[in-house]
Design a protein around this nucleic acid. Structure first.
Lengths: 344, 344
DNA sequence: ATGAAAGCGCTAACAA
DNA sequence: TTGTTAGCGCTTTCAT
């Protein structure tokens, strides 16, 4: 079945030694042009391709990096992946992508499995469950073995390796501030991602902004849960009771659901209520109306992570030279907020 | 730096031979319990993990499958990936995911690169550019080498391998019929994915449905382009001129943009105009209102593809036993269409 | 019960 | 210019 040809077979067919073939195929100066030509032509004819496995075994380098993604349906992660992929390809690296589905076990298993010669390094985002458990031994083990890791998005302090993050608190702060600058007075906070960074830091930034502008947080204007279940009802109830005129949503789904509720209640966006989201993905872009939101430059995050990892793999950076890179975010104004004439 | 321990080192440390260590670690009956214990304990202590590369080289099996995805930001593909991933994990296979960004060159390069021992088989969706060029030599080559391929979603007849598809024509037919059954009389067709299967077969199904119900297609009610550029304007113009009361959109973005336009014009959905989409992703689910659309069971598609491929890799199916699996689709009723009381 | 040796496909130091 | 040999980490057959 497997018809792939090896240098051994070429050597046999052409009555030369294996090493001659190897050298000829690598265009070594040691081999005569004539022999080279003969060998290369034969190789081409028979579609010879070097066995990557054998090469990797030899070089102790696989030119592959392992990517750990908690959830590929998350648009942010998909975009990070794209960024990684771009840089990896440019630098001649393959990527092997693994999805943990936010599971601790899956994460441990895959990382164990890959760290046995299959990959030269990891770019990982820690799963929700692992984060909750707080058990990072697998990361420590792998680092100890000398395999470099770059963490992105979710980055516990306990793990001593390179990290790429967005300053979510600041981003949330900016988003909330924007609402206040467009003269919203009762700004609600909605999150369906309570367990994640985005939920935690989003709230932090939101509160920080309120404090800065001397607004007292109102408990009933803050909706926090870790799934979208029952969110619609909660939002409706909040609107029934309170004169909300600004909403800060942490994740895209919250933003979308809020918009659905508002549209159904015939509330005008942004005339009656403004919305700003902390996540800028397709839902925000294609919502009716399109939602103003904070763009977290996922693509850049991926690029930085990949560049850093490959530099480390190739020894351009010392293994112990560990760095945290903070990717800037940017508020993208769309139609869910009033135009501001005073820029700040 | 690289502190991974090998059997050789264990052998040296314990003053036994390499093969003894190998056998002991594989729990061979040949080795005395005592020696086994000694070796296994030492291995555990030093966190010995077998080198996957060496194993693969030996076994000529890598237990890895290569996944080719044209565009990971596409929700459908991301879901297919999940399905593949699930089955692969269950069966102890790793996946190495490559994104072609719809580029022919990228596709050829990655597939060449991986088909040299890195993977045992491919699950691939052909890139848009490759489809346009009509050059499938790389697929033929790989198949000839004895590497199994399962194609999904985009499946040219020229390639003789396993395939998993959705019957898009039928799906589009069903979607259009649904609009007619809810008494729409002027049904528009909107596509921003002209170059893709979905655009082509979507139109075919749409026209088929019209024909079946003796409705003459109106050229001006059909909008076809291969990007979303200027789509909004075109849709607006169409609404200005024609009394559209039903819309069939092929891709999610078209659906979302149509909804945006409609909302902006204060057209009520579904009271004034109904919308049905051929793609069921997050945009449809979280749109205002949520869009009725055809669910293509991406997850199932991935599962089937992976199962088929692994069966083939493991020799449970003959290499030449080639099959096309058609995954059924299902119309998901949401709020962009009127409720039908007569089921059909 | 243990070990020596060959081999998976390839490279590279060394020899001829 | 070409070939021999050892070795990457591991398994497996065949001695011992």
């Amino acid at each position: 079945m497997n018809k792939r040809i090896t240098i051994k077979q070429i050597a046999l067919a052409l009555q030369v030694s294996i090493s001659t073939v190897s050298k000829a195929l690598n265009d070594s100066y040691e081999i005569s042009d004539e022999t080279k030509k003969r060998i290369q032509e034969y190789a081409k004819l028979h579609k010879y391709k070097p066995n990557t496995l054998a090469l990797s075994l030899q070089n102790k380098k696989t030119k592959t990096i392992g990517i750990i993604i908690p959830n590929i349906l998350n648009y942010y992660f998909a975009r990070v992946l794209r960024g990684i992929e771009k840089v990896a390809t440019e630098k001649g690296y393959n990527i092997i992508t693994c999805i943990t589905n936010e599971s601790y076990k899956k994460e441990v298993d895959t990382m164990e499995m890959l760290s046995n010669g299959t990959i030269d390094g990891f770019i990982a985002c820690i799963s929700e469950e692992t984060l909750k458990l707080g058990n990072f031994d697998h990361f420590h083990d792998i680092l100890e073995e000398g395999t470099p890791i770059v963490l992105y998005d979710r980055v516990p302090q306990e793990i001593n390796c390179d990290k790429v993050v967005t300053d979510l608190v600041k981003s949330a702060y900016k988003a909330t501030r924007f609402l206040m600058k467009s003269s919203c007075e009762n700004i609600a906070f909605i999150s369906a991602s309570e367990a994640l960074n985005i939920g935690k830091f989003g709230l932090e930034g939101y509160l920080k902004a309120l404090e800065k502008y001397n607004v007292n947080p109102v408990k009933n204007l803050i909706i926090r849960q870790d799934s979208e279940k029952g969110l619609k009802e909660k939002i409706n109830k909040m609107f029934d009771k309170y004169p909300v005129d600004g909403i800060f949503t942490v994740d895209e789904v919250s933003g979308a659901i809020t918009t659905q509720v508002l549209n159904k209640r015939f509330v005008r966006i942004p005339e009656d209520i403004s919305i700003v989201g902390l996540t800028n993905g397709i839902l925000s872009r294609y919502s009716s109306p399109p939602l103003t939101s904070v763009n977290r430059f996922a693509h850049t995050t991926g690029e930085i992570a990949a560049t850093r990892l490959i530099d480390k793999i190739e020894g351009k950076i010392e293994f112990d030279d560990v760095k945290i890179e903070v990717v800037k975010s940017k508020l993208v104004e769309r139609e869910s907020t009033k135009k501001l004439f005073i820029k700040f």
